[in-house]
Design a protein around this nucleic acid. Structure first.
Length: 206
DNA sequence: TGCCAGGCCCTCTTTAGGGCCTT
């Protein structure tokens, strides 16, 4: 079974929803998937330089006290940039994490030219029957084992990685002859919803 | 830092509005 190449699955905790509005990353978590197995991990809190709201403290469990002792975003993101290298990236609702990754790397004057795939967009197509497509719901829907920790970066990255494997597994089981590459997943997430069968059959015909 | 997003997706659509996802 193909595991769609080596990918790094990542998740940010942040001070809010929009880097364009001044929000910053406060934690990055990531796992490297090679041949369907987690072979490396990255997790680090980072100090955004201002206090986070009580909403963020409660939502993530990350307190201002914890962040006051963490290294700066600049230090952590430089290390993380080295960790991801040129790997293909996956995140749940990837547009969110991609915006923060680009914003933080821009502050370091580091170019970003890595491709992203989105487990949420793909799950909407592969698991249309799920009640909704929040990460926690999909983890339950696909019977992924977890330790009950949500909204922390490494925990969410680990669960997203397991969800990614479930997506690959479902596609491979349904279409055994299909070569499930990262590029195929990127194309799949852009197909009109409900047109998955047609897209796969077109792939198999080439 | 506090001006609070942005892209996808559906539908009672396309001369638009609102829910879903992420923190």
């Amino acid at each position: 079974m193909s595991h769609a190449d080596t990918v790094i699955v990542l998740d940010f905790e942040t001070t809010g929803l929009s880097p364009q509005q001044g929000d910053r990353a406060i934690e990055i978590g990531a796992v490297k998937l090679e041949n369907g197995i987690i072979t490396d991990r990255f997790q680090q809190l980072m100090n955004p330089g201002f206090r986070v709201t009580s909403f963020i403290e409660q939502y993530t469990g990350i307190s201002n006290e914890m962040l006051s002792q963490a290294p700066s975003c600049k230090t952590v993101m430089a290390d993380f940039s080295d960790f991801i290298g040129n790997s293909s990236l996956v995140a749940h609702n990837a547009s969110f994490d991609q915006r923060f990754l680009i914003a933080e790397l821009n502050r370091l004057h580091r170019p970003f030219n890595t491709s992203f795939a989105c487990s949420m967009l793909i799950a909407r197509r592969v698991f249309p029957e799920a009640a909704n497509h929040q990460l926690g719901t999909l983890v339950a829907h696909t019977n992924i084992e977890h330790d009950g920790v949500f909204h922390r970066a490494l925990a969410d990255a680990e669960m997203t990685a397991q969800l990614w494997l479930k997506l690959l597994q479902k596609l491979q089981q349904q279409w055994p002859a299909l070569t499930v590459s990262f590029e195929l997943m990127q194309q799949l997430q852009q197909q009109p919803k409900g047109a998955l069968d047609r897209f796969i059959k077109r792939q198999l015909a080439t």
